[in-house]
């Protein structure tokens, strides 16, 4: 378990990998409960507060988006190492989502279409961008659980603010909760 903080609040971290930040927007959609959120939780590494590196171990990590490049993988592993409980949030983290549409075709074809044969590409000068600072694309987009162990999933595109709120508050109460029927009804 993470070491207890001075304020004794559960520590939460969030990240967006190959996602659209929609899940984060949905998290912020808890409206005025954001004030309660600050009372109840301590937010560590997250795009919301722009903390780049974990300063302490987190109780809960929320991961939005799957892995489309090597940097995503490294960040996800970094989260896994630093969070007690890791939650895969939304369709992209859980299934690859929209970015995984490219999985049906070879990576090289995608790159050629996007950078070399694109209507805006300058004839004869276009290249596939590469720099050691740029992440390398993976052969396909992976859902998070194919890269690291995932403890829980929050389905939805995005999961609603209510689902975020219920998930986080149940965590501090140490209890489970039932997913709304709409999220798990298929027929």
């Amino acid at each position: 378990m993470a070491e207890q903080t001075a304020s004794n609040k559960p520590v939460v971290a969030t990240i967006s990998l190959a996602g659209c930040f929609g899940c984060h927007m949905s998290l912020l959609d808890i409206d005025d409960r954001i004030v309660q959120f600050i009372d109840l939780f301590e937010l560590n590494k997250s795009p919301v507060n722009d903390i780049k590196k974990f300063t302490k171990r987190a109780h809960v990590g929320l991961v939005e988006g799957g892995c489309c490049n090597d940097e995503n993988v490294k960040v996800l592993r970094y989260f896994r190492e630093n969070c007690d409980v890791l939650v895969s949030v939304g369709a992209c983290a859980g299934n690859g989502g929209l970015p995984a549409l490219r999985n049906k075709m070879p990576l090289q074809e995608c790159l050629v279409e996007a950078y070399l044969d694109a209507p805006t590409a300058e004839l004869g000068k276009a290249i596939i961008p590469y720099d050691e600072e740029l992440p390398k694309l993976l052969d396909r987009v992976y859902p998070c659980h194919e890269v690291v162990k995932i403890d829980y999933y929050m389905p939805g595109c995005p999961p609603s603010a209510e689902v975020f709120w219920d998930t986080l508050t149940s965590v501090i109460k140490g209890q489970g909760f039932d997913l709304p029927v709409e999220l798990i009804k298929y027929d």
Binding site: V73, Q108, V112, I128, D139, Y142, H145, V148, K149
Partner: peptide, 25 residues
């Protein structure tokens, strides 16, 4: 390590990208 998925191989999964760069650029 049970925290990582043993079936995922980072080196192998970027091979396609390296090949695309080599062949196209």
């Amino acid at each position: 390590n049970p925290l990582y998925d043993a079936s995922f191989n980072l080196e192998a999964s970027v091979e396609d990208f390296d090949r695309a760069l080599k062949e196209q650029n």
